[in-house]
Design a protein around this nucleic acid. Structure first.
Length: 483
DNA sequence: ATGATACCATAGGCTTCGGA
DNA sequence: TCCGAAGCCTATGGTATCAT
């Protein structure tokens, strides 16, 4: 049986589909970030249903769902939520099915994205094929997506939060391709033995594909796979922890004809000194954690707007002084920016540089908050004028501070372990901004036990503090290197 | 999932120039 | 005078990099 999810997995990476059917235990665990995204998707689905007050919910999955769907259609229901269809090898659920004046139906697929992306034609095409094979005629296929111009005032208004795009033409145009893809996907799920190289190289994932890595955890003879593999997958193999033997790594590299670049460090002392001349003490090392959702949680916010709920601030008054640390963390699920700004205004001095990693992010949040809290607009503008972006020292094209280990990248999570391995995130419960973000609603929920909240708060504070410690450590290291 | 920005490949429109 | 090749500029679409 091939479900719509199976088909989408296949389109991204055939190996993913195969693993999900035969070796699901090898798939990566759901991260809290992913869980939050699923939860958000469910909320979006629920809100979209409010666009159709007449709709009825179809209960059950698979055969039961299909039986209930048929029952609802026969009894004359005109709007169905979550109808299921099973036909031959295929199984799928639609979001919202709406009957027309004749005997045809329109498919409405709810997406949390802010536009009708072109890859949705395969998703919706799969649904159309399923329903039509089962004798349910489909006229239009629509995408109901988030309208990111919407600004919340009071209760969420679904008819303003959502926009609908008719993608029938595009869907139909790609229908033959969709049919072909379904045939291929069905072939994949019939492979009983270990998949061949062909399957791995069918991967369409533009980024590093984690599913090959997962697969490698489950087989012994990795070296036999190496010939003719895509370069992105070679790197994936090299990152596997099970490849701790240098000899195996070298074999893989040799087989692929891949030469690791030689290690090097390049420091343009003059250029960095010139940049650092712009700095004024006291130095304020600063970092926000933010929360954003497809459904804006508070008034004045638009979908996906990132709202700061936490910061860490480390102040260094002079080159040799000890840092003073300040922090803020909102403990209730209310718009936190007023209290955040009130505290920040007291803690951040009127003089001195504000050092951040990737200035666009922090300055962008400051601009948004200035619009929402006009009383703080001058203050925020002043802070933005004093921002210094530490990332630009490491930006590859700037050629100021380059190490081969950076691989031409310059995120904090890449630079830090090379320059200050002692400040690793490894021992922290929260390891990235995404986790911090998804922790905030948990921290502020009535349903979370007090004890758990305390632990969570500690973890969140430790993470955000570490981001600023990292900048302090990196700054010290660079200052030593250019002395 | 967003968004700003950077970068790259490609397409199209336009001019220029040499050969016939 | 005409035509196509070559060169150049701009627009566009796609992908990647940062942050959460």
């Amino acid at each position: 049986m091939l479900t719509k999810t199976d088909y989408k997995n296949y389109l991204e990476c055939p190996m993913w589909l195969w693993l999900s059917k035969y070796r699901p235990e090898l798939l990566p665990e759901e991260t809290s970030d992913l869980q939050r995204r699923f939860a958000m998707g469910n909320e979006v689905d629920a809100l979209a249903k409010k666009l159709f007050p007449e709709g009825i919910e179809i209960q059950g999955y698979n055969k039961e769902g299909w039986a209930n769907t048929q029952k609802a259609i026969l009894s004359g229901s005109k709007i169905l939520f979550q109808p299921t269809v099973i036909e031959g090898d295929l199984s799928c659920r639609a979001d919202i099915l709406v009957k027309n004046k004749d005997d045809s139906w329109d498919i409405n697929e709810v997406k949390m994205a802010t536009s009708a992306k072109k890859e949705y034609v395969f998703d919706v095409g799969f649904q159309k094929i399923c329903f039509e094979r089962a004798g349910i005629k489909i006229r239009k296929t629509n995408i109901i997506h988030i309208n990111n111009k919407y600004i919340r005032h009071g209760d969420i208004e679904p008819e303003k939060l959502f926009a609908t795009d008719d993608i029938t033409r595009e869907t139909d145009k790609h229908l033959p391709e969709t049919e072909e893809g379904i045939k291929e996907a069905l072939k994949v799920i019939k492979i009983k033995e270990e998949p061949s190289l062909e399957l791995i190289n069918g991967c369409n994932n533009s980024k590093r594909c984690e599913y090959l890595e997962c697969y490698c955890n489950g087989i012994k003879n990795i070296q036999s796979l190496v010939k003719d593999i895509q370069p992105k997958h070679i790197l994936a193999l090299l990152n596997r922890e099970i490849l701790d033997s240098k000899k195996i790594k070298q074999n893989i590299l040799d087989a692929a004809g891949y030469v690791l670049p030689e290690k090097f460090t390049k420091i343009d002392v003059d250029a960095i000194k010139k940049e650092f001349k712009k700095l004024k003490y006291p130095l304020h090392f600063f970092d926000y954690e933010t929360y954003g959702s497809a459904i804006p949680p508070f008034n004045g916010m638009r979908p996906y707007q990132q709202m700061p709920f936490q910061y860490s601030l480390m102040v260094k008054d002079s080159p040799d002084s000890v840092v003073r640390h300040f922090e803020f963390l909102a403990r209730t699920f209310e718009n936190p920016i007023h209290s955040l700004l009130a505290q920040l205004k007291k803690e951040i001095g009127p003089e001195g540089s504000v050092i951040v990693w990737y200035a666009k992010f922090e300055s962008g949040r400051n601009k948004e908050m200035a619009d929402m809290e006009p009383d703080f607009a001058d203050f925020l503008e002043d802070v933005n004028d004093r921002i210094f972006d530490l990332l630009l020292i490491f930006k590859h094209k700037n050629q100021m501070y380059i190490k081969s280990e950076f691989n031409k990248l310059a995120s904090l999570k890449i630079v830090l372990p090379v320059l200050c391995p002692e400040l690793s995130y490894k021992n922290l419960a929260i390891q990235g901004g995404g986790d911090a973000s998804s922790s905030w609603p948990v921290l502020t929920s009535d349903k979370t036990p007090a004890k758990e909240k305390e632990q969570l708060a500690k973890n969140m504070l430790a993470y955000c503090k570490r981001d600023t410690e990292a900048m302090v450590g990196i700054m010290d290291k660079v200052l030593r290197d250019i002395k």
